[in-house]
Every structure is written in C-alpha cells, then in structure tokens.
Design a protein around this nucleic acid. Structure first.
Lengths: 229, 229
DNA sequence: CGCGAGCTTGACGTTGTTCAACTAGAGTGG
DNA sequence: CCACTCTAGTTGAACAACGTCAAGCTCGCG
C-alpha cells in the first residue's frame, strides 16, 4: 500500500479547516512542521479502533467511513469527507474510539497531536472552533441515534438517499461509489434489505437506477418517507 | 412547581466539577455571581429539546434523564447524575439538542452561558477539561450506538442492570427508582419486553426482585449476556 | 372498599434477518 | 475471443425477534 508524500505548505492550503484559519502564522507553521500528507486507496484502513493516538487526521479529499469495530459487526458512526477531522474525540485520550477506512481514494493530512494540543492550549479562538466541531459530531450522532431508534428501515433508507444526494455527492443524478454492504451498514440493516428497498423505490418511481447511477425523481416522497414511522 | 433558591458560594461547593477546579478565584466568583440554584421534583422537566440556550446546567444531586424529543417517541441519550453537566453540546449553538427530566428529586446549578463562554475563552486548562467532558459524552453515545445496533434486547437489558448497579446506584441490592417505562426507553424497547426479561432473569436465578429492590446474584452471567449476540 | 396507574401475561402480527439459490458483470488466463 | 472464476447483487422462503393489543393483576391511596 504505497503512500506518496507530496507536501504543500499549510499556509497555502486550499482546503484549510475553518479552525486552522484562527491560527497565527507562527502556529500554523509549527503545525506544518509536524505534519505529513498521505494518500489512501479505496478500501484502505486509515486508523484502527482502540489503537494508540499520536496524531489527528484531516481529510483533504475523498470519502471515509468512520466506524466502531469491537469484534462483532461494524457500526458506522458516520461518513467524513473533505474538510473533516478524524480523531477529535480522542485528543485527550490515549486510545482511538473508532476505526476509519477510505471508501474512495483519499488524501489526508496527519498532524502531530502533541503540537495540536499545545496550540489548542495557546489559542482560545482555535479551541472554540474545535469545540464547535466536536459538538457537530455529537449533534450528528444524536440524529443517527434518533433515527435508529424511531425510524424503520424504509425511512432510514430514504434518509440515506437524501443524504447521499445533498451532503455526500451534492448532485442529483449521482454515481454511487458505495457497495450495498456499506449502504446497509450505514442504516444498520442487511444488504438484502437494501436490495429489496431499492427495487421497491424503483417500482414506485421514487428513484431511477442505471448501473451505479442513482437519480432521485421524487424528493418530496423520500422526505415524507424519511420522517414516517 | 416551586423551586427554592438556597445559594452556597461556588468556592465552598462540595460537589464542584473537576473543570471548575481549574478556574482562578476571580473566575469562579464571576461564575458564582451569575448563577442560580434550583431544585427539581421527580418527573419535572429541566429543559426542552429545541429551546433557546442561555444557560448551562450542572447537577449537584439527583438523577436526570437526557433525551431526544422530536415529536415521536423519546430516545434516551443517557442518564446524568451528580457532577455532570447538561447542555455542553450546545454551548456555541442557539438551540438545545435534547430535553432533560428529573427522574429523582434533583438539585442543579444554572450558570449563565455568556459568562461561562467568556471564561472558557480565557482559561485554557478549563477549556481542556470541558473538551474532555464533551468527549466523554461522545464516547458514551458511541457505546450506546454500538449496543443498539449489535446487541439484542436481552443483552441490552443485562447491560442496563449492570450499569444501574455499577454506575447509577453503586450498590448491589439497589432500590430501583425508575419505572418500567424508563427502563424500556433506556434500552429502546417496550415495557412488556422489560417485564418478560425481568421474569426470565428471575427464573434463571440471575437476579432477585423484591418490590422495587433488585439484587444481582449472577454478575458473570449478566456480563456474558451483555456481550452476546 | 374501590379506583387507577403501573405492571404482567398471553396471543398474535409485523418487520426484518438469515439462508440458500441464482444472476450479472468484471477480471483472468488460455 | 471464449470459457472460468469470483465477487457483488438479487430474489424467494422460512423463521426469529419484538412490538402491539387486550385482558387481567397488584398495590398504594383516597
């Protein structure tokens, strides 16, 4: 699994996190000094649940699945994409809470956690942004919790399709790069159920599917379904 | 719903959060100045999902259920007790993410959020502790997520009994002050299932139940069950 | 004594999983 | 270019786990 190292200085980084924009040039430089850039291939593991943490991962490009991995079936916590951090929940812990795996080819920045924490301690505006990001993760997981507990699979699948369109691919006919298995994990069900629901939604003219290209024809119906039950 | 106001100065508070111990006397005083102490009766609502946030709640004594409340059935996020904060996930948001209700008579400190945030900005050590607390919430909800997705109800019920013994009541024969309904919500099931499982566990000599007093006789078996499936 | 809320129990239905068989398509090697 | 294999996806049937409904019970309280 070769990982190429092509560094661009943080100062000129196109995809800088809003949090990093709060840093002084000096601070940004010290982050830059203790940083490496890695490329992950689709399917490659980025970090492993329970392993020791010494760095924080920032995604420049790509799509990553973040999941709990405790021996049994994986439970997906969420997807992360360009602009997101992986590992914020463990910045003061010694162990990582989850695993991450690239669902598409992914470019990431690995920053030294010690340096990161030092700067967190020096720069309150930065710290505020980091807290906001962590809280965003909390809000997302609460939403997920809610829909796992209260919404049946038909609704969760509808929700997933909307999220793929609106948040992940950000276009309407979109090319699905996830396997049925990953879709199933995302809504905590079996691949078979995903198949059946896809078929059902096609037959009801809610979606059109050609190969890996999905088109959502009836957004309103999907939205209705995603709230129901 | 009368709430009595009996203030003790923060400096002398017995149940001060570890985070507050990082404050300078001056900072603690300004928290103290903008603070009120309230008592909630069992069953009383403490705050409401979606309402505007202007304060942060700290629990001095009691037991509180924190839950998502979006019209449909409630989804419990977790229980909070002495030493816990409610509302940390919304310190930079305008709306609260969840509701809270007292499960037992509860004493709480309500601190002004503006003051809290000002101090958060001034005191990095404090900010670190707050991030740790938020991350603890994240870790808990991930655990919950995992068990909701991977563990069946028998296992989740076993887990609940262990948690009640170890974390909530911290004693072995313990007097259960939660209704079946709340227990059911805690593991996302129906009251009927709780009844049936209680009966089953009694008949298998895993627990003894006398009225509201539960005694766990076979901890190992419970632990085994809580991992299984 | 009687009322009512919370709890229990049984019968039944629904949802969604599991298993197994089958299909389609992509990649490989002759 | 064609067989061959392998994986991902689809489909159907059987089944298990739970929820729902309805009826009955219990116990505290007026």
């Amino acid at each position: 699994m070769e990982k190429s190292h092509i560094k661009v200085c943080c100062i000129n980084c196109q995809c800088m996190s809003t949090a990093f924009k709060k840093l002084l040039p000096k601070q940004l430089r010290s982050i830059d000094n203790k940083r490496s850039e890695l490329k992950y291939r689709k399917g490659e593991m980025i970090c492993k649940d329970g392993s020791f943490v010494s760095s924080l991962i920032f995604i420049k490009k790509g799509l990553v699945k973040v999941y709990l991995d405790k021996g049994r079936e994986q439970v997906i916590i969420g997807l992360k994409k360009s602009g997101d951090f992986i590992g914020l929940s463990s910045i003061y812990e010694d162990r990582l809470l989850y695993s991450a795996e690239a669902l598409e080819d992914t470019d990431a920045c690995i920053t030294d956690l010690r340096t990161f924490n030092t700067i967190l301690n020096e720069n309150a505006a930065f710290s505020t942004e980091i807290i906001k990001l962590i809280n965003k993760d909390l809000a997302k997981i609460y939403d997920r919790m809610y829909s796992f507990s209260n919404i049946q699979i038909r609704g969760r699948f509808a929700e997933l399709l909307l999220a793929l369109m609106e948040n992940i691919y950000e276009s309407n006919p979109f090319e699905l790069k996830l396997s049925r298995k990953v879709m199933a994990e995302l809504v905590s069900t079996s691949n078979e159920s995903i198949s059946r629901l896809t078929k059902e939604f096609k037959s009801k003219n809610i979606i059109k599917v050609k190969g890996r290209v999905f088109e959502i024809s009836d957004i309103e119906e999907l939205r209705r379904l995603s709230f129901e039950e």
